[in-house]
Design a binder for these strands. Structure first.
Length: 774
DNA sequence: CAGTGAGCGAGCTTCCGCTTGACTT
């Protein structure tokens, strides 16, 4: 038996370290935290110094008992969890739970998984830092108190099963408030003037820096240009440079993978996890931009040998985030000489991104020559401006260019263009000039990744929780990630060409969104409730201010119980008062009066979601209709609401059964004989003819028939179908995958039944547990 | 993917942060 037991948090790390340490060391993993507060209300004894009650959760029992056994046999136990608040607490929990002895236990830390770093750590062990542990306890207790007192208030005042917390509630608030900014935004139109000079390859664009608010002014400008002479008034060339971005942290990786690869934050994390487990990259949950000395050397070597000495420049980056705890390195390839890796396409692409970003971070800056030509118009005092850019040295751009969040279409032209050789005073030949009406844009909706960026800036959440937080707020129904169609908008274009001005009206699609986060009604109602009654908790700076106090605890300047006491007393009082005094929140809003009956029309959240109601008194005949996807209580109008009552509508009869058109969660559909048929896009659900409906039903049946492999005489409900992932059995409401090697064509009814029953008996544990329904 | 929107009441829900697997119609 080995003399030493060394415990780290992650099994992949354990494997690597074991290789460095030789056979005197057994290296094991705790798989993160091994204990947590009990679920019940008595987890924290508020009366007695907030004493906590911990337990080992069921899924950690085995890990703990194995570690316990190994610890007993070992001469020395080395606690090597991460060097941050949570890591220190993990060491402390291990010390307590494994019944370790003070004199046989050593606490060590390292920031990078390299042999010298680990050996150095072993040379200088220390004791558990109880100040740091206390800071973690304060963090844990605060989060539990906030979450488990606030959530029940929502159950009483809004709806059961809702949740609130220090992190998730702020995330929802950001999205709700952004949506409101967008709603109240008024686009301002202005005319943008762009001129094209020269012909063929010599042609280039110039733009007027000023914009015209009125069409007359734009038109006058164009008019003045008809007879004008254009000359280069000034020509200025100056050098410019661009530096590479720091290597990835969790949050920047999520952002870039979202922009460049279209990954959701959880997809990014699970692909990165695979790369980490197969030893391809360093740890993927980190807030550090630091690279180990070994990594710096190895990157330098790669850059010099692949691109040459002039492309290399060693850089050390500093984190900009105040909340960073930097227990790990930045995310980088384990071996820089592996430019690509095996694996599925997602792994390969993410690895490539990580490799390029880390390599580029150690490369020289790119150098440009930027030219600005100002062009005088003889009949006007304004000048047109042409920008040209020539790259003199590509530097890090040879490998990697960071993408950006703003997709400002106004900047597309002009920048990066190459200007033909020009001389001062040169007369230019105008080919064409346009005045295009452009609109100011509302603030952008959050994507998952840009929300993570914002949370990180506010110091809210940690690398390990960004992805789960995004999932939580969606699972609770506070937020939806959606694609929404834009609206058509007209804009005017004036074109000056050949001495004539042509006026046109064009249309563009605006406001279309894909993969953006939208608040739901319940999200908005819960947010408003929390902002009204618990302003302090959902304040954007709440986390920053408690973090400051955690730091003081960690430095031994403050008692953690004092801090919690000071926070808890007024907070708990607010909870009490709110329970006693606050009204139920349903987001109710009056829309006006029903034009025909004169009854009141209102909208609010009900048991089954948001709905419109006509009538209010008990004795009145009331009418109800659910809101549709994309409609919200706060923005729906009386007219929209009236439309809702026009459907469902009977459109005719087919095979002796009614055909009804309605709108559901996934859009308009026809219901016929208890089956659903989606309406193709472009057909107005209010204007579907009987013949059209029949056609849609038959079309769908034809498509289904193509998927069908086999049916059975015994039971028409049972079918074998071709699905996206191969053949499967549709057994009533249950779908069962056909095992590999079985020929779907030759399956009997009895076999199908057995497969279905076997699948029923073996419920998908994890799937059901983690993926909340609805 | 209907329409439903009353009321009773037992028993349940819920936080954040550290990990990995088992799970995908």
């Amino acid at each position: 038996m080995a003399k030493n037991l060394l415990i780290v948090e992650s099994p992949a790390k354990a494997k690597t370290i074991e290789g460095y340490l030789g056979k005197d060391f057994t290296v094991k993993s705790s798989y993160g935290h091994i204990r947590d507060l009990v679920k019940s209300e008595d987890a924290i004894d508020i009366e007695h110094g907030f004493k906590q009650k911990y337990e080992v959760p069921a899924d950690k029992k085995q890990v703990v008992s194995e570690l316990k056994k190994l610890a007993k046999e070992a001469e020395t136990v080395w606690l090597a969890s991460d060097e941050d608040r949570e890591g220190e607490a993990i060491s402390w929990h291990l010390f307590e739970t494994l019944d370790l002895k003070e004199d046989k236990t050593k606490r060590i830390v390292f920031h990078e998984i390299t042999k010298p770093a680990i050996l150095r750590a072993i040379e200088s062990p220390r004791k558990i830092d109880y100040n740091l542990v206390n800071a973690q306890q304060a963090r844990r207790v605060l989060d539990r108190l906030v979450g488990f007192e606030l959530s029940p208030v929502l159950w009483k005042k809004v709806k059961p099963s809702l949740s609130a917390g220090r992190v998730q509630s702020v995330a929802v608030r950001l999205i709700v408030e952004r949506e409101r900014e967008i709603n109240k935004f008024n686009a301002e139109a202005a005319f943008r003037i762009v001129a094209i000079f020269g012909k063929g390859k010599e042609a280039f664009k110039a733009e007027l820096p000023e914009r015209f608010n009125k069409q007359e002014d734009a038109e006058k400008f164009l008019n003045d240009c008809i007879a004008a002479e254009f000359n280069v008034n000034s020509l200025e060339t100056r050098p410019a440079k661009r530096s590479p971005a720091a290597p990835f942290t969790t949050s920047t990786l999520q952002q870039e993978a979202s922009r460049k690869l279209g990954f959701s934050v959880s997809r990014t994390m699970s692909v990165a996890q695979k790369l980490y487990e197969s030893g391809k990259i360093t740890y993927m949950r980190t807030d550090s931009v630091n690279l180990s000395d070994l990594a710096l050397q190895s990157a330098a070597q790669q850059i010099v040998s692949a691109y040459g000495e002039q492309y290399h420049q060693q850089r050390k980056y500093k984190t900009k985030s105040a909340s960073a705890q930097e227990a790990h390195e930045a995310i980088r390839p384990t071996y820089f000489n592996e430019h690509t890796v095996d694996g599925d396409p997602a792994e390969r692409r993410l690895y490539e991104l990580i490799w390029k970003r880390a390599i580029a971070s150690q490369m020289s800056e790119a150098q440009f020559e930027r030219t600005v030509a100002k062009i005088g118009v003889s009949t006007r005092k304004e000048e047109l401006v042409a920008n040209g850019e020539v790259m003199k040295f590509d530097g890090f751009l040879k490998v990697y260019l960071e993408s950006s969040d703003d997709e400002d279409d106004n900047q597309q032209d002009g920048d990066n263009a190459i200007l033909p050789p020009l001389t001062k005073g040169q007369r230019l030949d105008l080919q064409e000039m346009t005045a295009t009406e452009r609109f100011s844009r509302p603030p952008a909706r959050y994507t998952e990744a840009s929300l993570v960026k914002k949370l990180e800036e506010l110091g809210i959440g940690r690398p390990s929780t960004y992805a789960p937080t995004i999932s939580t707020i969606q699972n609770r129904g506070y937020v939806v990630k959606e694609e929404r169609e834009g609206k058509q908008r007209n804009f005017r274009v004036l074109t000056l060409k050949g001495g004539n001005i042509k006026k046109e009206e064009k249309t563009e699609n605006t406001g279309a969104e894909k993969g953006k986060l939208f608040p739901t009604d319940i999200g908005a109602v819960v947010n408003d409730f929390l902002v009204q009654y618990f302003k302090g908790i959902v304040d954007f700076h709440f986390t920053a201010s408690v973090e400051k106090q955690f730091d003081e605890i960690a430095r031994g300047l403050k008692e953690w119980t004092d801090m919690i006491e000071t926070f808890y007393k007024p907070f708990h009082q607010e909870v009490q008062t709110t329970i006693e005094t606050a009204d139920r929140a349903s987001g109710e809003r009056e829309l006006g009066v029903h034009p025909e009956s004169g009854k009141k029309v209102s909208v609010r959240i009900g048991r089954y979601g948001p709905f419109v109601q006509i009538g209010e008194n008990d004795d009145e005949q009331k009418q109800y209709a659910s809101l549709r996807a994309g409609q919200m209580i706060e923005t729906i109008t009386l007219e929209d609401a009236m439309e809702l009552f026009k459907l469902p509508k009977k459109v005719g009869v087919f095979e002796d059964k009614d055909m009804t058109v309605a709108i559901g969660k996934f859009g308009p559909y026809i219901r016929h004989n208890s089956a659903f048929y989606s309406l193709p896009k472009g057909i107005d659900p209010l204007d579907v003819s009987e013949a059209q409906a029949v056609e849609i039903i038959q079309e769908k049946r034809k498509k289904d028939a193509e998927k069908l492999i086999k049916t059975f005489e015994e039971n028409a409900e049972v079918k074998i179908l071709n699905g996206r992932w191969g053949p499967y059995i549709e057994f009533g409401k249950q779908n069962v995958k056909i095992p590999k090697g079985k020929d779907p064509q030759s399956l009997t009814y009895q076999e199908c039944k057995e497969l279905a029953e076997a699948a029923e008996k073996e419920p998908k544990k994890a799937g059901k547990k983690f993926v909340k329904k609805k």
